[in-house]
């Protein structure tokens, strides 16, 4: 399938390492999705289902998402230990090991143990999942909106404007932007947890759109001279409409793939910032902030770190496999056999 693939002239592109997974898209011309209709999606779906790791990833991601949404409420209903419930009995305000009752016997009440204040870690991890997934998804959507619009406009207009716009992207690429994000978050530290969360969306979204812009631009460049675009132009459709109604929908495949791969990298950045104390603030909690709290007690209560940490790792792992699988399924040409 890939036998005839040419060795492309290597380009010196500096990509922030978070994006390296998707680097191969940059060199690859768009696949056949231009012409194909629904059968392409059905084909892709069939190929995705054949990929066992991707299916595993998809199932885990769905399970984690559903559990995060309904889990805390269910736990609260079952045994009263909601994520923020601190027992009134002072003898219970301490960290119990997983599956241990206060008297040391086996118990189903806290499968992941409790934290220093006696809160149920499983309920907290599931609730943290809501925040972590939300940060991942919203920041990715922010990056998607900026990246697609920027890339589509640059690619469609072409010429000097394109050149200028992409040069700007190149400069941004070479900036040590994580440093800037830290300065931004530290300086504009919001007094409320929600305010800090919004700041986080903006900060992470505004640094993750660069690769998306490059991918979309590449797609648009090769799409804009296709017959259907020429036809639309010949019939007097406006430029904005051509870009966003005719061209952008056709770049959907790579955009979906790349967005799927952006979610875990954004989540990782969120965790990293939360660990440093610039991310999610209490009373809100994410996997990153929970794990970071757990680190203090690693020697005595390792479960406080291990459960949030491993839940997060498992989710990122699954998202990465799903993203890789989607890439293979949606664009056979991109595939690394």
């Amino acid at each position: 399938m890939n036998e005839d693939k040419r060795v492309s002239e290597p380009e010196v592109i500096h990509t922030p390492p978070e994006f390296v997974v998707a680097e191969e898209e940059l060199h690859t011309p768009p696949g056949e999705e231009i012409v194909a209709g629904t059968s392409l999606w059905r084909d892709a779906w069939r190929r995705l289902l054949k990929n066992r790791l991707a299916v595993f990833g998809m199932i885990v991601v769905i399970l984690v998402a559903v559990a995060s949404l309904v889990g805390p409420e269910i736990i609260k209903r079952v045994n009263g230990f909601g994520p923020d419930y601190i027992p009134s009995d002072s003898r219970l305000i301490k960290s119990f090991a997983p599956f241990r009752a206060p008297d040391g016997s086996f118990s189903w009440t806290h499968p992941m143990g409790t934290d220093n204040q006696g809160r149920d870690i499983m309920a907290r991890v599931l609730q943290g999942g809501q925040i972590s997934l939300m940060v991942g998804i919203i920041a990715t959507i922010v990056s998607l909106l900026i990246g697609v619009a920027y890339g589509a406009v640059a690619g469609y207009l072409g010429g000097r404007i394109d050149n200028l716009m992409m040069r700007f992207v190149d400069i941004l690429y070479s900036l040590p932007y994580i440093i800037l994000v830290i300065v931004l978050l530290a300086m504009f530290r919001s007094s409320t947890a929600v305010g800090q969360l919004v700041l986080l969306f903006i900060a992470l979204g505004s640094v993750s759109w660069l690769t998306m812009a490059r991918i979309v631009r590449g797609q648009v460049l090769s799409l804009k001279n296709q017959e259907f675009v020429l036809a639309a132009r010949a019939t007097g459709v406006s430029t904005t409409r051509i870009i966003f109604r005719h061209i952008v929908p056709n770049t959907l495949g790579p955009v979906i793939v790349y967005a799927t791969l952006t979610i875990p990298t954004v989540m990782l950045s969120e965790a990293f910032l939360s660990y440093l104390g610039f991310g999610v603030q209490p009373p809100l909690a994410s996997w990153g902030s929970l794990a970071s709290d757990g680190i203090q007690n690693i020697a005595i209560f390792p479960w406080q770190l291990i459960f949030p940490g491993l839940t997060m790792a498992l989710t990122l792992f699954s998202l990465n496999f799903l993203g890789d699988g989607l890439r293979d399924a949606l664009d056979p040409q991109m595939r690394k056999v």
């Binding site: 965790a271 990293f272 990153g288 794990a291 690693i298 498992l314 990122l316």
Partner: peptide, 16 residues
Amino acid sequence: MVGISVPNFVLGPILV
């Protein structure tokens, strides 16, 4: 893939 998915501030304490 595990290496990419496990944040270093989780890996570090586990190694410790």
